[in-house]
Design a protein around this nucleic acid. Structure first.
Lengths: 348, 348
DNA sequence: GTTGGCACTCATAATATACGAGTGCTAAAG
DNA sequence: CTTTAGCACTCGTATATTATGAGTGCCAAC
């Protein structure tokens, strides 16, 4: 049984119609398609063949056909026509990101929200930090009599700060001492290395001052952890409620999405470009009724995070895939404004 | 018609049973209540009286009664027995907040999430900044060749920082110049005053350097705005899906909650203690099927924010009110660890 | 004032019937 | 060999009908 051209056209028509209407597609409907000019009976024969090939399913005897997971897969891999974004569409998306001086974290959470609004799907946005990233510099800035701001700058350009209140008055001498101490002990170490044990070991080197400086040491640990863990934002989870596929599963999925531990590994380990997981292809059983689209984004050559869409299997792949791709690209571009590392160019 | 003791006991029993079961309560069920030892017929007479008084409603002729909004109001204001939290319960809540060195913003968002988990309601947590709060100090810290960290310290003790990348190399001279300039222009002004116009006016005073320093000036503006706007966090919106009251309204309510513009004013303007809005008492029409509990929290004497619960009108007020109150109290205590202002005590 | 008795209401569930979209198969036409 | 019309069959959905029972309101008796 050959997967000939007419079968392909019929499968495409079924997938596209089902995505649009949510109703099983029958032979009569298909016969009215422009590209398919044969009688319903012929189409029924073809559909029976496609069913044999595992590309279609039948909810019940007297209903039309819907695509199986394999059917979607064939459609996405071979049949679908991806429409490149028009310049107008690109401009529209660009306008959503029109912020003068984006804070990287805020940019990412905004992106999750915007992407959800734009696609009607739930979204995830997360960053990942490579294992080789090290602490490049630590600074401590007296801000108030008993308040300092602690800074950790990582080798990938990420800077995090934290306000620490101390039990004693801070003068420049103390600040200078601690700055030197902290930089000596932490700089050059990878973020991954800086565990609770590592920090304890450093702390005891302060001897009698160990207790006094403990809030600062802990602060450095927390900042390193924050940088290494990266961000994890969700957007538009409530969008799922608009699909009746989720009428009684929405709560379960919404809970799952907020579990970074579960979703993070699934989303974070993907090649560049857009990857599609259709229904049962998802490793998490709770997602078997959903499709997951993920796209990695990068700053220059450095892969640094993922954005993802979660929606019903019956989602508009041909529209969403290029849009997700463009969002990822845009995000990388915007982040590189903030994260471009120092270059040889030193004038200005 | 007197609102005598037996009527009160019957109303209480109806409210409590309805809250527990979600089903209209009938005379037979009530007759089995320990505190009510009269026959169903007598109870029916009393219920007819309570209905006349507007305290009960009847979904249809052959169903039991449910409390009207007035009925809930009477129950909450006069009849309900508030159970003070046991020490065990308090310890349980305290344990949820067991963080060594809380970041204030994170503390608030965690609180929203924890409170939702604890109560099964959707939650809001927000801070408000009084109009009189001023900029106390601005600092600029070179962190990297072209990177500085900008700090704004407000007179209420809130410190916010932001990383700024600049188009030129920063040395201590430039940093010192800008620090002095910024402090001269901004310190002492209320956060409210620092508008876009104010910032533009300051910027042009830099003359030829206006463009060069613009990212920093804008950064200060954004930080001031961030402090003045305060935080707004939501928690556990998906909890609403567990109540069938929301079966078809969940999306609408979930969208409403994320609109800070709409909910903020309603939640932010309340006296201290716990305030209860039952169903139609809410000024937002979308909340007419929900009840809203809000509690203000404060640092020392300074009122500084609100936490709120949103759930079905049929919520367990007698349990939730004291719990919300304790959460607010706890939050104030924990925040005061971070936000305690400098005192006369200078040793250490 | 309280209670048992009883007819009445009405939401819910269960059952029966009708409808129709869509199929698979067969046999005839191309 | 492919395509198509015809037709009996399936089965989910919609509609109508009936039964059930929880709960009420009212009345007369205690």
């Amino acid at each position: 049984m050959r997967f000939d051209d007419r079968k392909k056209r019929i499968l495409s028509a079924i997938v596209e119609t089902y995505i649009r209407t949510g109703e099983p597609v029958g032979s009569k409907t298909l016969s009215e398609f422009p590209g398919i000019s044969v009688s319903p009976a012929t189409i029924r024969n073809e559909m029976a063949a496609l069913f044999e090939m595992g590309l279609l399913e039948q909810p019940h005897t007297s209903a039309g056909r819907i695509p199986s997971h394999l059917g979607y897969r064939a459609y996405i891999d071979d049949l679908m026509m991806i429409m490149p974004l028009t310049e107008d569409e690109k401009d529209g998306i660009d306008a959503l990101f029109n912020i003068s001086d984006p804070d990287p974290d805020k940019l990412l959470s905004d992106c999750a929200e915007t992407l959800a609004e734009y696609t009607g799907c739930a979204t995830v946005a997360m960053t990942t930090t490579p294992h080789y990233v090290t602490v490049e510099h630590i600074d401590i800035v007296p801000a108030d009599e008993r308040t300092v701001v602690l800074l950790v700058i990582a080798s990938n350009g990420v800077v995090k700060s934290k306000v620490c209140r101390l039990g004693f008055r801070v003068n420049t001498g103390i600040a200078d001492f601690f700055r030197k101490f902290a930089n000596d002990r932490f700089c050059g170490h990878t973020l991954k290395e800086i565990s609770a044990e590592f920090v304890t070991a450093v702390s005891i080197q302060l001897g009698d001052y160990s207790n006094v400086f403990n809030p600062l040491i802990v602060g450095i640990y927390e900042l390193c952890k924050e940088v290494y863990d990266g961000q994890y934002y969700l957007g538009g989870r409530e969008k799922l409620l608009t699909y009746n596929e989720y009428s009684d599963r929405a709560l379960e999925i919404m809970k799952l999405l907020s579990k970074r531990d579960e979703l993070g590994p699934v989303i974070g380990n993907n090649p560049s470009g857009v990857t599609v997981f259709i229904g049962k292809e998802n490793s998490l059983s709770q997602l078997s009724g959903s499709s997951l689209l993920v796209a990695r984004f990068s700053i220059g050559e450095n892969d640094c995070g993922t954005i993802g869409l979660i929606g019903p299997v019956r989602m508009d792949y041909s529209r969403l895939i290029p849009h997700l791709e463009y969002f990822a690209e845009k995000l990388g571009t915007l982040l590189s404004i903030t994260y471009q590392r120092k270059t040889g160019d030193e004038n200005g």
